[in-house]
């Protein structure tokens, strides 16, 4: 089979069969990319994955671009990425169209009132998990509080915090190294 087509279909299958994105995708990647196709070694995959987390954007997308690039050059990177997002486009568009027509029904409104409570708890749990890795000392706690208050109370755009937090990290670590 054509390598590009193979890349597209493999990553479409990975995208369509994993729930929860990023972390849930790793076992599927190991099976499809390492064991079945030999497009990357176990170590390479772990490296891509680690790097996918420290580059901007969605981890699943970053990993797909990496594997595709490694297998079939820049075009391969683009095709693997389009593959991984393809099922989402189809599934979500169908659900969105369906729900648009039923949004006014009482049963749908009541269901989503319950679901909103759940989302609130799920987001809180996600923050608690990240907090353990992110807030490691007093300085990172101060960064956390400044950004939380700045964004929630004063509505400052997230982009500004991301730029200043990156620069702040470099400045603080630099000072630490000198001291």
């Amino acid at each position: 089979m054509n390598k590009y087509l193979d890349l597209f279909l493999t990553f479409a299958r990975i995208g369509g069969l994993t729930f929860g994105g990023g972390y849930a995708m790793l076992p599927m990647l190991q099976k499809e990319v390492v064991e079945k196709r030999g497009w990357a070694t176990e170590e390479e995959l772990m490296d891509y994955y680690a790097l996918g987390q420290c580059t901007p954007g969605i981890i699943a997308v970053n990993t797909a671009t990496f594997v595709g690039q490694n297998t079939a050059g820049n075009v391969g990177g683009i095709i693997a990425t389009l593959g991984v997002v393809f099922p989402s486009l189809i599934i979500i568009s169908i659900i969105a169209m369906f729900l648009q027509n039923f949004a006014d029904l009482a049963v749908v409104q009541n269901a989503f009132a319950g679901i909103r409570v759940c989302v609130c708890v799920l987001v809180f749990n996600a923050v608690m998990k990240l907090w353990k890795k992110a807030v490691v000392d007093k300085k990172t706690l101060v960064i956390f509080l400044i950004v939380l208050i700045g964004n929630f109370v004063f509505d400052v755009a997230p982009t500004i915090f991301v730029i200043f937090a990156a620069l702040g990290g470099i400045f603080l670590k630099n000072k630490e190294a000198k001291a």
Binding site: V135, F144, V147, N151, F161, G168, I170
Partner: peptide, 10 residues
């Protein structure tokens, strides 16, 4: 080091 707490806060 700076991005992680900022991202969690957002």
């Amino acid at each position: 080091y700076g991005l992680r707490p900022a991202s969690s806060a957002l």
